[in-house]
Design a protein around this nucleic acid. Structure first.
Lengths: 150, 150
DNA sequence: TGCGTATATTTGTCATGACAAATAAAAAGA
DNA sequence: TCTTTTTATTTGTCATGACAAATATACGCA
């Protein structure tokens, strides 16, 4: 093996993402929330703009449509959101936040802060920004490649 | 929402990891390999040291034991590895690479290089190293927190 | 030696990811 | 208007992640 996985940025990001997600799960559990990290993300975008469609949510969250459908279905069963078929275009369903979602909003924010604090301990704001910049560039590289392949 | 998910390092890493994995999947498919990114990782560590146990693999790959069991089972079905029960401790099984694994080794390496090249386009070696350093620190933060909770 | 505890692995269940295929409805074109 | 193509969403299948529980075996101590 000429390649060292341990010094491959790709692999380190993949591994770290798993660890981060696991950690977030624990923070959520500790705060007695009954949602998952990926359900958060969907709620987050709905808090930004209520009534988004499945497709819009998928685009914002950079998730697969199919998976967003399922996440929304879970949130619906849990009573956090409701689907409404669009009148203009009946293929589209708009997702609306329900009162139950408001009740957990603060707690969700607190979990986000808590998770970030754990992960970013001892890493300065400036470093975080530099990190974000590089991550963005990697993301662009991949997105470009995806569209290029198409 | 006071928090911006888009400027949260946690979230960016999580999102990027998903994109990276998707991209790796595509590179694998293009190279006609019948294994998955996570199966690669297990093979990689076996190429480093053949005969590791499930537990050792889990530790190295930072994966859940249960999941490693399943990944190894798939690799076994595919004919890339074989399980052998340890003589010293019959709870332990050692995983050994099979000839079929050798046949794909070069191709796997090529895929790794290809994926890295796509992701790291325009990012200097020095920047990659800085990035790795920060990622390591985040990883340490999380691992420390995990053990602290225990 | 025998029992209780610790350790290695496996199995079960659910959530999510990828991707393909199925549906349904809108839009475009002849 | 009818047909074809495009678009939005859903469903199906498999791989993997988390976590709990089940198994099997080893180890330590009375």
């Amino acid at each position: 093996m000429k390649i060292r996985l341990e010094s491959s940025v790709n692999h380190q990001i993949a591994t770290l993402a798993v660890l981060l997600k696991r950690q977030v799960f624990r923070v959520i559990a500790k705060n007695d929330l009954d949602i998952t990290p990926d359900q958060w993300v969907i709620l987050y975008f709905l808090w930004q703009k209520d009534g988004l469609s499945v497709g819009e949510l998928a685009a914002k969250a950079k998730k697969d449509f199919a998976n967003v459908t399922r996440i929304v279905s879970k949130l619906e069963v849990l009573g956090y959101v409701a689907r409404t078929q669009s009148e203009k275009d009946s293929r589209v369903s708009h997702i609306y936040l329900q009162p139950k979602a408001d009740q957990i909003k603060d707690k969700v924010q607190q979990c986000m802060v808590e998770s970030t604090d754990i992960a970013m301990k001892g890493i300065s704001q400036a470093e975080q920004e530099r990190l974000l910049t590089i991550l963005d560039r990697i993301e662009c590289n991949i997105l470009e490649n995806e569209t290029a392949v198409k």
